[in-house]
Write a protein that binds this DNA or RNA. Structure first.
Length: 558
RNA sequence: UCCCUGGUGGUGUAAUGGUAGCACAGAGGAUUUUGAUUCCUUUAGUUGGGGUUCGAGUCCCUACCGGGGAACCA
């Protein structure tokens, strides 16, 4: 289903093409997608890995999946599995290239020793607060740590004992010796190893010292011979460090191509909250079912809600890649979802708010099975049989006692086409005591079977229906756009984001669907004609539960 | 305050120094057995000011505005 839409020539493509022009063999291009397993992936991550995997594939290279597991305090194995599932779902294959930063712990330790031996790293005894003083502030240079000139032998000894577990958390830290006056604060002797007596998801208790991101990431990249390392804008100021560790260790001698870091703007989506911390809060406080609640902007939530991988990939291609902090409107995502669903969703009829109709000129107990196409956009989708009988249900809103001018559905004395079935005329109606119309008495034109008038006259209105005796009860869960009433990007510091959640973000409805839906498979997209796109909830439930994926565009109001 | 970045219609993005294009959203219309889809038409833009140039969204200077940076997080 790859679209032949022209691809935007964003700056990443330009960079890669320049490298190729300078002699880089496209087959040597290696990128990586490096999530930290401390939460589930969301739509923002999709942008990142569509870029990582997408660029490698597009130019004939490879992309590795690497878990950045350098902080055992935050990471969990269940997230590793969830992330793998999400990546697979989006259709990306890392083949045998699944890595963990922890694969390199021994190597990283040795590179750290190398730095100590060459006088480029030292053990510092300053506490975090004390070092803050020495680091200085933007605009003001810092001053050297009193331990900066600790002899290498002594640092080495302490570092080895750190590893051996001789010290408590925070007692010592290994720092790179760079420049305490650098205007970039990250270059002022950053910590590269800290003591952390914490069980790691993969190495267990083998280590009690762990490398920092800045030290681990670039050297992990280099170990995997990554050529292009993409990350978000906030790492821009870390880039000199990325290069420094590679260039100041023996790693540089092993490389044919030095990995380079390139930054791009992260995704901001209107009406969508993407802070991992806040999403976690929703899960913990049970405001949502779990990370895969269909209202969540997580990939697992979107999957459960019925979003297709193709729609998400198209969206990621559509938004492009820049270094500009923008706010993408959710309408674009919804457009991509509808556009893909329109092509692939199986059409079915479902009545949400039923109005009884009796066909006066139809024999009691007689059923006519009519053929309905499964998807007018896809010839190969085939057909299914739809039952018609004397008692049917139509949508309450498809009948009006006193219709306005442009209303072309049913009204007293008016006629309408029942989709796939017959042309039907409303003879009379029955009202409740309260004045509510509760039943229509109609007749069908027997010669119009299939929906065409024998005299060739045009029927403007076509409505959907289900046969009462054949109808299947189901539940529909209706969701508003991803969770928040308004843009969350301007939320004030400390402001309670929960006040901005959609109050009616989940509405449940009892609906009547055609019998063929009894065999619906979880995850397959359906379009309930003239209503919305739905998918059967994959979580076990009593009876059929459909999640609303997206609404149809509605031009009723025009 | 200092450093790093960035600024193209309402929104998201294109344009070796040479006609500012595409998509979403909006508006109008045609087709339609889904008031969907599809198709056509249309509204709307280079942050301001200087400079270089035959010619500037693009290069230079400057102002303004936005984002990031002072974790033993990633």
């Amino acid at each position: 289903m790859s679209e032949e839409t022209p691809k935007s020539k964003h700056f990443i493509r330009q960079i890669i093409e320049d490298d190729i022009a300078k002699g880089l063999d496209p087959k040597d291009i290696i990128t990586r997608f490096p999530p930290e397993p401390n939460g589930c992936l969301h739509i923002g991550h999709a942008k990142a890995f569509c870029l990582d995997f997408g660029m490698a594939l597009e130019y004939g290279g490879k992309c590795n999946l690497r878990f950045d597991d350098t902080n055992p305090a935050k990471e969990e194995n269940r997230f590793v599995e969830a992330i793998k599932e999400d990546v697979r779902w989006l259709g990306f294959d890392w083949e045998d290239r699944l890595f963990y930063a922890s694969d390199y712990f021994e190597d990283l330790y040795n590179y750290a020793i190398e730095l100590i031996e060459t006088g480029k790293a030292y053990i510092c005894t300053l506490s975090p607060d004390e070092f803050k003083e020495y680091r200085g502030i933007p605009g003001k240079p810092g001053k050297d740590s009193p331990f900066r000139n600790r002899p290498a032998a002594e640092s080495l000894d302490i570092f080895r004992r750190m590893r051996a577990g001789d010290f408590k958390d925070g007692e010592y830290v290994l720092r790179a010796k760079i420049d305490m006056t650098d205007p970039n604060l990250h270059m002022r002797d950053p910590a590269i190893y800290r003591i952390k007596h914490s069980e790691h998801i993969r190495t267990g208790n083998a280590w009690c010292i762990y490398p920092m991101y800045d030290f681990a990431h670039c050297l992990s990249d280099a170990s995997e011979r990554i050529t292009h390392s993409f990350c978000t804008l906030e790492f821009e100021v870390h880039r000199p460090l990325y290069d420094w560790f590679i260039e100041n260790t023996s790693m540089i001698k092993k490389l044919k191509v030095q990995p380079r870091q390139y930054e791009f703007a992260r995704l901001n989506l209107s009406h969508t909250m993407m802070s991992k911390r806040k999403l976690q809060q929703l899960v913990e406080e049970k405001i949502v079912e779990d990370w895969d609640d269909p209202r969540m902007p997580t990939l697992s939530g979107m999957r459960r809600r019925g979003y297709t991988p193709q729609a998400i990939k198209n969206f990621c291609e559509e938004i492009g890649v820049t270094k500009f902090n923008s706010l993408t409107q959710i309408a674009l995502l919804e457009h991509c979802v509808r556009a893909d669903l329109n092509k692939v969703a199986t059409r079915r009829m479902a009545v949400f708010d039923p109005l009884e109709v009796e066909i006066e000129n139809w024999e009691e107990g007689k059923t006519d099975w009519l053929e309905g196409v499964n998807n007018p956009e896809d010839e190969g989708a085939g057909t299914r049989m739809v039952p018609f009988s004397k008692h049917i249900l139509i949508e309450k809103s498809d009948f009006m006692e006193n219709p306005p001018k442009k209303y072309f559905r049913l009204c007293p004395g008016g006629e309408v086409r029942l989709r796939y079935a017959y042309i039907m005329k409303c003879n009379s109606f029955v009202k409740h005591d309260a004045g509510e119309v509760v039943k229509l008495l109609c007749s069908v034109e027997h010669d119009s079977r299939g929906g065409n008038a024998p005299d060739g006259r045009k029927i403007k209105g076509t409505i959907h229906f289900v046969s009462s005796e054949h109808a299947v009860r189901a539940k529909a869960k209706l969701f508003d756009n991803l969770f928040t009433k308004e843009d969350m990007t301007n939320l004030a510091e400390g402001e309670d984001f929960k006040a901005h959640l959609n109050s009616n973000s989940l509405v449940e409805a009892e609906i009547f669907v055609e019998p063929s839906l009894q065999e619906a498979k979880a995850g397959t997209p359906f379009q309930f004609e003239r209503n919305a796109y739905f998918t059967l909830d994959p979580k076990p439930a009593d009876g059929l539960v459909f999640n609303r994926t997206a609404t149809l565009k509605d031009s009723f109001s025009k």
